[in-house]
């Protein structure tokens, strides 16, 4: 078994063993491999000298460059903020109308707004901001709490029914479940709401019961004419824009079980500039 043979093809000698027909040549390690060993080790040693690397029981070698990963990202962010300042500062300072009139600035807002809205708001309000069942459309010009920029900024800061201490609160009570209205009464008040949004008919004439129930229970929040009340975030019921759906079934469920939308507060998570950008972004998108 242990006969050193010369491989006729390569001319190299074998190590002299054979295992189940397998032999090995005793070829020298090719020089290229030693080069590769040398280069990679050299590179590694340089890196070790420059960067934090070797543990020393209670501390570690810090490296000549003095880098820390946290320091690097902090610096990158400070730098990014500085680079954006030329447009971000004006956006924070200027009124929304003026930003919208400034092509350059509103371009920035549109660019930035896309991912800012996409990553934070689209989950609820949809990628196109048109809302969906339970989440209001933000570009239909119809606002629960009012459409001027400061109001929207405030809404974003504190949220609605959120965990923020100054949150806006709004609640539509559960008239059916809590026994305030019976089923026929709810149906008749729905009839009244339907009539409210029609301009041709006088609502109380053909449904006096519904009108009375409405006046007693709903008008305090949604107003005598059903146009809502921005101070308490009560929606307009006459405009064919529905958060929870406008079909009889959904409206019935709203009145029976009540509603309390929950909009997170963004203060802290988003910077004042970002909140201003989003506000402008929405007002801009709504106007188009």
């Amino acid at each position: 078994m242990s006969v050193k043979e010369r491989d006729p093809l390569t001319g190299h000698q074998t190590t002299g063993h054979e295992w189940d027909g397998i032999t090995e040549l005793n070829t020298r390690v090719p020089r290229a491999v030693w080069w590769a060993v040398g280069l990679t080790h050299l590179w590694a040693v340089i890196v070790w000298v420059l960067l934090p690397t070797w543990p020393l029981v209670t501390t570690y070698t810090k490296g000549l460059l003095g880098l820390t990963d946290r320091g690097e990202v902090d610096a990158a962010i400070v730098q990014a903020n500085a680079a954006r300042a030329d447009w971000a500062d004006p956006v924070l300072a200027m009124p929304v109308d003026e930003i919208r009139a400034d092509d350059a600035l509103i371009g920035r807002v549109r660019q930035t707004g896309h991912s800012l809205f996409g990553d934070n708001c689209a989950g609820c309000h949809g990628r196109d901001a048109r809302g969906g069942p339970g989440f209001p459309n933000l570009i239909d010009g119809d606002w629960l709490w009012g459409g001027d920029p400061d109001t929207i900024i405030e809404t974003l800061n504190v949220g609605i029914n959120s965990t923020h201490p100054d949150t806006r609160t709004s609640q539509m009570m559960a008239f059916g479940r809590d026994g305030m209205l019976t089923r026929p009464q709810i149906l008749s008040v729905i009839g009244h709401i339907r009539a409210l949004s029609r301009t041709d008919a006088a609502p109380s004439a053909d449904n006096p019961a519904g009108a009375e129930i409405y006046a007693d229970n709903c008008a305090s929040c949604h107003g005598d004419d059903g146009r809502g009340m921005e101070e308490i975030g009560a929606p307009n019921l006459t405009d064919n824009q529905w958060i929870y759906g406008g079909d009889d079934d959904s409206v019935y469920r709203t009145i029976w079980g009540g509603r309390q939308g929950w909009m997170p507060s963004w203060q802290g998570r988003l910077s004042p500039t970002e909140i201003k950008i989003l506000t402008t972004y929405l007002l801009d998108a709504g106007a188009q």
């Binding site: 990553d119 934070n120 989950g123 609820c124 990628r127 965990t163 997170p264």
Partner: peptide, 29 residues
């Protein structure tokens, strides 16, 4: 899916429930 390390308070309970029951109900993609 996205990172969740700072998820707390970013959405409402109601949103999470709906999302977990059927994610495409709230995020069609």
């Amino acid at each position: 899916g996205p990172d969740l390390a700072r998820l707390g308070d970013k959405f409402s309970d109601d949103w999470h429930v709906r999302h977990l029951i059927d994610p495409r109900d709230v995020v069609p993609e």
